[in-house]
Amino acid sequence: MKQFIKYCLRFLLPLTIVAVFFEIALRKIPNDYQYKNTYLNQHSNELEVLFLGSSHIFYGINPDYIRCRSFNAAHVSQTLDLDYKILISHENNWKSLKYIVIPVDYFSFYSQLAQTAEDWRLKNYIIYDGIYSSFNPNYYSELSSNNMHDNIERYKKYYFHSTSDITCNSLGWGNNYQSNHGKNLDTTGKFAARSHLAKNNELFEENVSILGNIIAFAKAKNIAIILISCPAYYTYTQNLNTSQYQKTKETAIQLCNAYSRCHYYNFFEDARFLNTDFYDANHLNEIGARKFSLQLDSIIKLKENQFN
């Protein structure tokens, strides 16, 4: 048996060395998660407005247009449970925070990242943010959570062509959904509406409770909460399940009743957003992001005046 183990170890040694080297190299590639975590570690005590949420916020709100000191901490597919974990992980640092902006979109109460096909993204919250834990060992390594082809591409891009994985600007806005590369609004609308349809209601109560916790957290620290439904193009909104949409909207309004400084704004079918504002049917491009950010800035300023 000793001989068997010896040969196994000898056989596995080169593979292990290559794997460790590759894992370390991949982790050294700068990415959005690492960047945002570092930013929050350094500046969370100075922030006045914090944007959380999924790709709708990540691509939709550019803090450059917000007059208060703000940061976009949203990520693609980031769900409410992760928003809450980000908030809690810097619990004692939100010394200047006045507003937390959270999206309440069509799918917000029906999904959690761990239960979606995008669950591989959880590795980012484990490796770079240290805010998530799981029994699934895949999420603890870059190598095991991504397809090897993608990993090799990332490696080549960074080490041979000096292109990093960072897709956001210095304040966290995702800037690679540009108007000149927009997608077909018809097909993307139908596809996104289909994929955002809730498969069941299993996560509804839990997600409502998580948002309730976020509101309670804000209330305890006297931070105002702004819940928003992000703008979407009609090819998306008209293909949605009406009862899922209504239930989401009503729940958001109900949650706001628990805290006087919690307000809900619905931009979902806002006619001010035109086809030229969208990258695809449910994501804004840089033009739409500017428009949306300016509107949020006006809301924040208005609230500031009211509170003062």
Binding site: F11, L15, A117, W120, N138, S144, N147, M148, H149
Partner: peptide, 19 residues
């Protein structure tokens, strides 16, 4: 022989994606 096994393993790893 080991080289052949490494090729098989590396090919498996290369194509490993979503389980």
């Amino acid at each position: 022989r080991w080289g052949f096994y490494y090729v098989l393993i590396l090919t498996c790893i290369y194509y490993a994606g979503v389980e």
